[in-house]
Amino acid sequence: MNYHWNWWIFFEPSLDGTNTYLTTLFWGLGWTAATAVVGFTIALVLGSVVGVARTAPIGWVQTSGMVFVEVFRNIPLLVQMFLWYFVLPEVLPRDAGMWLKQFPNAQFYTAAVCLGFYHAARMAEVVRAGLLSLSRGQKMAGQALGLTLPQTYRYVLLPVAYRIVVPAITSEFLSCTKNTSVGIAIGLVELTGTARAMQENTFQVFEAFAAATVLYLALNMVIVFAMRSVEKAAVIPGLGNRIAGRGR
């Protein structure tokens, strides 16, 4: 292979004149993490609402939950990104569209909201599966004590459902983190984007992507460790599979 390795490239100043390439990579990592955290927070909240809606005993609520899931699951993430970034300002009333276009850090907010909705559809399925794995008696027991339906979800069903699906939430969070890289298409300078810029400016292709790879692996590890402690904290003493999968 006639490729000229140059690992010192990381310490050379980047095109912006002040930061080294290494620093720009860390900035990229920061934007990746920020986009992932904001996006996944939206996904958790919105996905819970939609997931609950899909198990609600009201026809039109269930249907709208299903439509939400199908729409955001069956359009490629990149296309959704374009819709949020290019199309939404066009279909909004003129003033609102202008306001959106001039929003500072628009790429960041767009990517976070887009990822939020995309992963909300998938989180909704996770939350729904968790809720369906609980026995029907749990819901009845909550209601028999006089809790309203929303209270039953809030205090009885969701706390247990969330605990059951922690592993699925972890893998969804990891997937959301990886998907921040799709933001590159609307100009978000996240980790893959900074590595790509470094490659274009220096032609040190493999150093740039190797660095990005290492940083992604590190980020993955941080998330896995963090979620493992969440999982440990969420363990219910004495609970095996007893509540899951019981009939009526």
Binding site: G137, Q138, A141, A144, G146, V160, R163, I236, L239, R246
Partner: peptide
Amino acid sequence: LRSRVGMVFQHFELFPH
């Protein structure tokens, strides 16, 4: 009404968490 009528279930249905 339900808060005034107590109910006990076959499978106990305590809240596991």
